[in-house]
Nucleic acid binder design. Structure first.
Lengths: 141, 141
DNA sequence: TGCTTGTCGACAAGCATTGTCGTTAGTGTG
DNA sequence: CACACTAACGACAATGCTTGTCGACAAGCA
């Protein structure tokens, strides 16, 4: 994801307005590798702006997604995660107990659909989810 | 997934009861590789049993999942898919336009988390989702 | 500065899934 | 084969996440 200043320019170029709410979200996401849910972003934003609404966070996240500045992940945890790392190709490691998500900046070679199963299909994207338990959660069984 | 008769035995051994509703669902799932949603299973079941409820289908699917007889897939399509194929290790190809899911009975070698990223983590499971468009959907852009 | 129009927050609605609960009906036992 | 025990049923409401609506507001351009 680009810097808050760069995003300001990009948003304006697209005819989108840059409001204090959006700038707050830009700031929160910049360099965040915790894969926050929209709700947790909302909570953090609200600490600085008492009246910001959940809807606004959703909308801004979707705008950022449409511009390719974040990726919205559905890892099957019930709610969606925001991943500002769109520069590096990567996959994810998920702790099914606490919801922790770690980036796997790995290029998984040989990850393609064998020809005979690719028939009638155009593949655009591959998502790999490794599921398990982080040590912290393994300890307290 | 095992046959309807085998499932009857297994359910009874577990203290679970085998009702006409459950038998109908066993029958519907046996050999079904269409990865139906719970809702579509419900619709098909209702064609034979007018009064069966959606809740019952959910419950039976969850029971089957707990027994390891089906896998419940969340491919990010909004609703969950039921996959009765638990015998063969496989991954999935998803048409993001029409929701078609095809099994990929492929053993993807080299699909593991590199040691330095595996630290503090016990990996149980890997899910690979190939997304794209089937030809049918590609044609009518 | 003033106008246009995208965005805001409050609220309610949408969808998939699950909880509640009184009634019905499998199942093992006698 | 009847009984009793209790799991499972269907109807309904509620949950959690996400999105639609809408009038008021303010960002950004001229």
């Amino acid at each position: 994801m680009k810097s808050s200043e760069a995003l300001t320019t990009i948003f304006r170029e697209q005819g989108l307005r840059v409001t204090p709410q959006r700038q707050e979200i830009f700031r929160l996401l910049d360099g965040d590798d915790s894969h926050p849910t929209v709700e947790s972003l909302f909570d953090r934003a609200r600490a600085h702006m008492a009246t910001i609404s959940l809807k606004t966070v959703y909308q801004t996240v979707h705008d950022l997604e449409a511009l390719g500045e974040v990726r919205v992940l559905d890892l099957g945890t019930g709610s969606v995660r925001v991943d500002p790392n769109v520069e590096d190709d990567h996959h994810h490691l998920l702790c099914t107990a606490c919801g922790l998500v770690r980036d796997l900046p790995v290029e998984l070679d040989g990850l393609h659909v064998p020809i005979r199963y690719r028939r009638d299909f155009t593949v655009d994207d591959v998502q790999v989810i490794f599921r398990g338990r982080c040590d912290h959660c393994s300890d307290r069984v």
